[in-house]
Design a binder for these strands. Structure first.
Lengths: 338, 338
DNA sequence: TTGTACGCGTTATCAT
DNA sequence: ATGATAACGCGTACAA
């Protein structure tokens, strides 16, 4: 509970000198500095970040805005791994993280700017928000630096981190085509997610390059939900036996498709090949293990935080975005068609 | 950026009146209050929580101290689910969460008390720390309210949340005994974790109640690591073919044991029954799906936050602890011995 | 019912 | 090299 005032009194100097001594200013006698540092230690002093924030108008804090942080996300762990990366990169440069979990109800009560200003966060990392989220407009208008995860938005103080979703999808589809598949369906997430749009684009692009027809009804909506993907795939596959392969925009949905296949007594990969996206931990443990496009989620978080802190420290870095590479992970859910 | 000063000027009143009006004090004319509220809205005012914290010496913030928040935890998701519960309960009552991830290096640089005081957190929830963690002593000594997850410590302003680990272990072992197993080994985590001690206790207790011998060399150290559990189990099972069942102190380690069994060409559950602990998401997807003791991780977090906030709001609640029940989840890794 | 004045712990400005 | 003093935005005795 000791303050610089206490130290000043104990050391017989003014608060100004204490402040300067403790903050490593040059214009303070080495002897007095030593003395001050010692009394500070003796009094078990630690600076009050709140008071400092108030006067400096900086908080050394970045807000982590996660939409719908809840149990449903527990399965794919995406959020968590990204968060670990953010945390590591942020604490490397002395920033703390404050967690803002939001949802539609809360958004009505408090605007984005309010949220940030209340806590005086210096910057924000946004994760898991949809493209039509009302906060997005506010972010652009506000002058608070922000980095999006998986939403490709750029601006004066807005950047983003994502992976090459188009190319990732292309890799997946190309792999299937190379195996000999000609009727390849896709289970996509909801179209409010940028990644859905990208992955769909990659899917179509690769089909076109292989001069395969792009059929609109081959694209199913799985809403990023295992259950929804399952039922969509079930209904589709029941009446489309010509389809021998499915590309899924997420591993979670791929799990749903695997379930559907099982119900239809389709063997994987003999009767149906499946490729997922994300490389969630689960995908190594399914039977058979899921072939998928791997994203480095930790790295995404790490890059996001690095990007943001470099924006904060005023480095006029020209790069306001980072696009990470993905990787085709061959496991056991793909094979040539019979 | 509007402050109460701006509002005062615009509304033609003093800052005091603004402060009182906005904070719902009774001693302010209804008309002036309305007026003030309107100008506040017009100026897009939002209170500065930092300034408020400074003067009130309260931050409406609770610190979430997670030891070794990193990728290795990604697999079992325990941390994340608990966090979701904490987050929900905290935001219900208007508290924000600040993330302190710590490790042994950082602990040397900054004491627990320093950490808390710097950020003026009102209380702390501690997760994932070992019993010999140096911070624990500080927590007890300090007067900052703290709730531990899975460390059974009580004090004036210290409480904890856990599940009934002893009974959970008993359920697991009893289940195996009821199936007819007589040689039941255990793979335990490291003994710096309270849960390890409890689960071991339950294991031994249940054996004793069934009048089965407790053999010391039947208890393996898996260190809560899949790989370590695998090698320990491999070496053990290779030379102890009489053992027909293994109880593991975590699902993660159970996965390791399953791997070991596979390498030894032991069929699960025919040749070897396995019971885990935790009910991580993965355990439903292994083949065969893992029989385990399920803990409600989200609820643990929720209760922890509720406990803490009730301590903070001064409710002299007599209950400084919460012990949740566990549940035996019968899946497919257990069967009678051949 | 309203306003004045002070303090929270810190940094920054300007003298000395 | 050091110190007095004013700010930062807010809450709250105390006075009016």
């Amino acid at each position: 509970m000791a303050t610089i005032k206490d130290i000043a009194k104990a050391a017989g100097v003014s608060v100004t000198t204490v402040s300067r001594a403790l903050n490593g200013y040059g214009d303070v006698n080495e002897k007095t500095r030593k003395h001050i540092e010692e009394t500070a230690k003796k009094l078990n002093y630690s600076p009050n970040a709140v008071a400092r924030s108030l006067v400096m108008n900086k908080s050394r804090t970045i807000g982590l805005l996660v939409s719908e942080l809840n149990r449903s996300g527990a399965k794919d762990m995406f959020t968590y791994e990204v968060m670990c990366g953010i945390n590591d990169a942020a604490s490397d440069v002395g920033y703390d993280l404050i967690l803002f979990s939001t949802n539609t109800v809360k958004q009505k009560q408090k605007s984005y700017t309010q949220l940030c200003r209340e806590r005086q966060v210096e910057g924000v990392i946004m994760q898991g928000i949809k493209k039509d989220d009302p906060y997005i407009k506010e972010v652009i208008d506000s002058n608070i630096p922000c980095v999006f995860v998986d939403v490709e938005l750029e601006g004066d103080n807005v950047g983003f981190v994502t992976t090459d979703n188009v190319f990732g999808a292309q890799m997946a589809v190309k792999h299937l085509i190379n195996l000999g598949h000609r009727h390849i369906a896709m289970v996509n997430g909801h179209d409010k997610a940028e990644v859905s749009q990208k992955r769909l684009k990659g899917y179509m692009k690769e089909l076109q390059e292989a001069e395969l027809p792009v059929k609109e009804d081959y694209v199913l909506n799985g809403g990023f939900l295992e259950s929804k993907a399952e039922s969509a795939a079930y209904n589709f596959l029941k009446t489309n036996r010509q389809v021998t392969a499915v590309f899924c925009a997420s591993d979670l949905m791929a799990l749903g498709v695997m379930r559907a296949a099982r119900r239809l007594e389709l063997n994987i990969p003999e009767d149906l090949s499946i490729v997922g996206f994300d490389d969630i931990v689960l995908s190594q443990y399914t039977s058979p293990p899921l072939t998928t496009i791997g994203q480095d989620k930790y790295q995404m978080g790490y890059e996001a935080a690095k990007l943001l802190t470099s924006m904060l420290t005023g480095k006029k870095s020209p790069h306001k975005k980072a696009v990470l590479d993905n990787q085709l992970l061959l496991r056991e859910t793909t094979a040539p068609p019979k």
